[in-house]
Each structure stands twice: as structure tokens, then as C-alpha cells.
Design a protein around this nucleic acid. Sequence first.
DNA 1: TTGAAAGCGATACCAC
DNA 2: GTGGTATCGCTTTCAA
Lengths: 361, 361
Amino acid sequence: MVTIREISKKANVSIATVSKVLNGKPGVSKFTADHVLSIARELNYRPNLNARSLKKGQSQTLGIITEDLTVFNTPDIIDGIDVYCESQGYHYILSNLRLNKRYGNHPDDIDIKECTKLINSLTDTLLSKQVNGIIYIGCHSHAVVPTKYSNEIPFVYAYCYSTNPKIPSVMYDDQKAAFEVTQLLINKGHTHIGVIAGLRESIHTTNRILGYQEALYTNNIPYNPRLTLYGNWERDEGYYLSEELIKAGVTAIFAHNDLMAIGVIDYCNKHGIQVGKDLSLFGFDNREISAYCHPTLSTVSLPLFEIGQHATRLMLDILAGHNIEGGLKIMLPCSIIERESTGLPVSKEKNKSEESHETRS
Amino acid sequence: MVTIREISKKANVSIATVSKVLNGKPGVSKFTADHVLSIARELNYRPNLNARSLKKGQSQTLGIITEDLTVFNTPDIIDGIDVYCESQGYHYILSNLRLNKRYGNHPDDIDIKECTKLINSLTDTLLSKQVNGIIYIGCHSHAVVPTKYSNEIPFVYAYCYSTNPKIPSVMYDDQKAAFEVTQLLINKGHTHIGVIAGLRESIHTTNRILGYQEALYTNNIPYNPRLTLYGNWERDEGYYLSEELIKAGVTAIFAHNDLMAIGVIDYCNKHGIQVGKDLSLFGFDNREISAYCHPTLSTVSLPLFEIGQHATRLMLDILAGHNIEGGLKIMLPCSIIERESTGLPVSKEKNKSEESHETRS
DNA sequence: TTGAAAGCGATACCAC
DNA sequence: GTGGTATCGCTTTCAA
């Protein structure tokens, strides 16, 4: 490895001068600087970043802890972090909890003690590597138990949040997205809109139902609790629950994720109901499959990349001691993607007949 | 930050002794060791890894360069690297080229010069961070131009390979997988098996066709070049090409990726052909969608996690100066996933009629 | 404009 | 068993 010492020998100057030149500091004559620079290039010099950060006590490095790198949302969030870090001359170090492979998909299976130990161990390592802050990426929006490290180093939570409200987090706005989806369906003339919700205890579910209700209220449509059924995020559940909703006379279904929406399509295919014509359907998540199914699925696209960017901006602002504009909880808007499954506006005729159907039942 | 100096003060011993204790080195009395350890714990000591690697000239760290983190294969490969690194006490630093976002999906759009500059810059940074080796993860199996750094630091290519045959790489065995798929279809009684291949210039395409031909030869089925059509990996192409194959009388289609296979399903759905009954279908890649489409798609699952593990094992062997068992080019086997789209064995009746059909055409 | 020297935190040699 | 000290590569202060 080439060091500044070797450069200084070859250039017949001191290492102090070399250091100044390499860092573009003033107080060196142009002649010396050019000379040193050309030798550095010639020797193919590369600074030792470890030595530099040891000396400076500053690593310009962020730690990232992901709950699971292989979950669909995570890579795009990291991409956002990557771009923002690059633009600010920051580096990052990734640490992966691999929660899914370790504990399976089911949150109940997670041994909190065990998991906390794991997080602590990764955090320790990150601190040993002198990171200046840690961005924690959840694999779904759940509350994370605050870590004992939050006094030692700033944390920002992305796609999840801490139970301690003072800890900053960046999430997306479920309620607003659900409001917009519902409003869009209402604009198309739907008044009997069923919901296949996620798990009762999920914050996503709660907020999406809130947005749905808000849209109904805004449009003077009474909320019928019997049109909101809770699912388990799985495709099969979409299949079974859609039957109940369709029998209850809904003309549109808002499923809380794409997988359950695909289940609705399954049911309709099997029973001769044309999605996009006889029934309007919306999913959530904009999973790859939503663009590939038949009919293609209208859905909600998550601002993953932006979550990464904003989390990083927030972190760097905190590290710089800036005033945090916009508060510590950032909610980013989703975008609505309309595809075939929503279909055309409902005709007056049809809506009327549906209403009478509902009255009958 | 707590340092060994502080520990040594509080414990009334020298920093040399503290260092020995912390590293489990001999030459310290049990009493002193316990004392030091308890103080280290009390102060919540964490070693400065940068300082350590500066002193030792060894970072125990690998660099990972990904062509694109958001491509479906990459996270699982990193997972494999992660697991192996963890088991060996190694760390890694991730660097993402973000090729897709920078240049779009089309390889032709990539400015080789620009791209090489980018790779060099990331490699420089990784070297500055004192990594001991670099694993390069491609987003598809293409030849990578050898970097000027290969003399400075060991490289291992994962999911791609270097044009320099001496540089180690870990890929999966396309040919073997294609052989097995074809053999499976033959075992079910198919003799007219169409292929919707990938792009002509892709190594995947070449090897998969080779495996297909090998299986035909092994079973004394003549190879009919008219049953191999080249696609562009996209769904639409699967749709259009399947028409030609079906008209040519094939009873089974082997598509070189799941996306084109979905296109085949599209075509069949539209034309009343039942996939899994009238036509056997195989995809490749085991994309998420292959489990969600109707019928579910038989496909080939890639050993992504294993590629990561083997690449890391290979790298650590090289770093340790071990004999590299199994050579520098590792080919890992894929596994065949049979789902609904393959269907039952062809009845003698049907096969005969198909053959006569073929004869007619 | 230049350079000697201190020191970041840790390791390891060698003397006691 | 224990500890003094040189050193890793770099930055920065201060004196020349």
C-alpha cells in the first residue's frame, strides 16, 4: 500500500505538505502541489480511510440495519439511502438481521429477547466501526422497541417507527392513500365499496380503514361496518372474503394488499365475474405481480426510494445539528396506479340496480 | 468513546495488559483478567475496529459490488454472503452501482467507458476502506471486463464471470437445469417440445439450448430447430412466439424465463388452450409471480443464496492461500420446481394424434 | 510556504 | 505476569 510517507520521500517534501496537498488545504505553493499530485497519481495512491477517520474522529459513515434484505421493500429504500449518501459524500455500512430466515414470516414466532440481543450485537459492531448514525429499515411498518443505544448515537427509523415518539421515523401515509383510492372509486360512481383489510392489529390496517371511512364521510356515504372484513394478508383470504362482500352487493373492493386482491381475482374468475367490468378492484403495494395478473391490478405504489432518501436527509440534518424542518415523523405520500381492474365509471343504471339489490338483501 | 486507556487507568494496569485481556491472549493472571473484563463491561467498552485494522493491517472485511441491488437476484446472493461472513467472523461493505436506474434496463444503453469509470471509483473507495477482497455481483450472467485492480486485490464474480478465465466466478448451471427440465417433459411423454429462448447473445440462452438438445439426443429425439424461437425475455414475446410453436404442434413449451412463460399462459387463456392439460409449460427463474399465476408455473429455482455462500467461501479460501478445491469456475445446480403448468403424463392416444398432426403440418 | 511532532486507538515486541 | 513503547497512516498545530 502506498502511503503519504512514500509520496513525501519521492517528492522530497514532508508528509505534512503531502497531506495538505491531498486535502486541498491552503498554504502550499502551486508548484509543490502539482509536483506532489503528479507523484501521488504516479504511485497510484489511495488514502487509508480507516486511518483518516481514526485521526479525525469522524467517519462520514452511516450504519444501516435491515430487518430483512430479501423483503420486497428493502432494496429500494437502500437505493434511496445510497443516492443521498453519495450526493453528500457519506458512506454507509449495511447490517442485515435476516429476520425472515431466522424466525420465519410470522411475527409471533419472533423471540423478542433473542431478537433484541441480535439487534444489540449488530449495533455494537456498527458502533465499533465508528458509524455516526444508524438508519433502521423495518420489513413492515411496526413499532420497534427503542434500543438502549439511542442515547449514544442517533437513530432514524425507515418503514417503521419507534415506540418512543421522540425518535425520528419516515413512513408512508396509509390513510391518505386509502382516502384517495376510495375517493377514486366514489368518483367512478361506486357507493358500495367493500374492504378486505389486513390483520386487525396492524397499523397499516387501521390507517387504511381510517382513510376509507374519511372518504365515505366526505362524500356523505354512510359507513357500513359489514363491508369491512379482516384478512391475513394472504391470497386465499382474499378469495374467501370476496365471496362475502360480493354477496353483500358491493360494486367495488379495496383490498389492503395486492396478494389478497389477486385472491379476489381468483374468486371472480371462478365465478364468471369480470373484474374491471362487473367489479372494480384495488390492491395495495404495487408488487410486481400487480402488473402481470389478469386483469392488471390497480394499486398503490409505495414511496420506497423516497423513504430512503428522506431518512438519510433527516439523519444528516440531525448529525449536522440543523433544525429539523417538518418534524420528526415524516409521512410520505403514496401514488395511485390505475390499471385495468378499476374499470370504467359505473353507469347510472347499474348503480341503481345494485342499490336495489342491496336493499333487498 | 471508551478506550483501552480509560480501562487501564480505572483498573490500574497498563494498556498492554488490557489489550491482552480483551484479545484473550495468554500471559495475564486470571485475577487481573477478570478485573479488567469487569471494568470493560462496566464502562461499556467497544473496540475501535478502524484502529485495530490500522494497526494489524488486516480488516477482515470483504467488499461487495452489486450491479443493481434492486434486481431480484441480488438480495438473496448478499444473504448468502452475509451468512458465510458471519460464520467466519468476516465483515463486508456494500457498494451499489445502481446500473438499472443509471442506464435503464437495456444493456446496449450502457456506456462501457462511463461504467468502467464508475466501477473503478467504487473499487477505489473499497480499497481505501482496506477490504481484503471484492465479490462482484452481476444482475445477469454476462462477461465482465476484467478490472485493472485484479492484481491488487482478489476478485470473485458471482452470477457473472470475467472475460479473463483465471478470475474465479460462481454461477449456476443453466445447461444442467435445461437438461433436467427437458428430461422431465420427455419422461411425461412429450416428444415435441418447443423452446421460447432468451436473447441470442445471452450465455443463458446458449447454455439452456445446449441442455435442451442434450436431453433430446440422450432420448433419441431429433432436434428440430424450428421449435426453438428466440425471444427478448419479455412477456409479450412469450405470447407471440407461443402461437407459432403451438401451430407447429408442440405439446410442451420450455420458456427461458418466467415472464415469457406467463406470456404463453396469456396466449393459451385467450385461445381456450388449457395449460397443464392441453399443453405442458415450464418457465425459468422461479420469480414470485410463478407461484401466483394461473395455473401455477413449473419453473427452475436459482441457487442464489448458495451462490453467495460459495463465492464467499471461495474468496476466503483464496485469502487464506488455500488450495482451491473444485477449480476457479464454480457451477451450482438449480432445482426444478414442478407446479400445475406441467400437468400429467401425456396419454399414448394424445401423443399419437399430436404426432400425426405434426406430420400433417 | 514548509515541516517537526503530537496523537487518534489499538497491537505486539521486548524488557523487567 | 506485567508494562513501556514503537508503530499503523493520517491530520493538524505550531514553530521556523
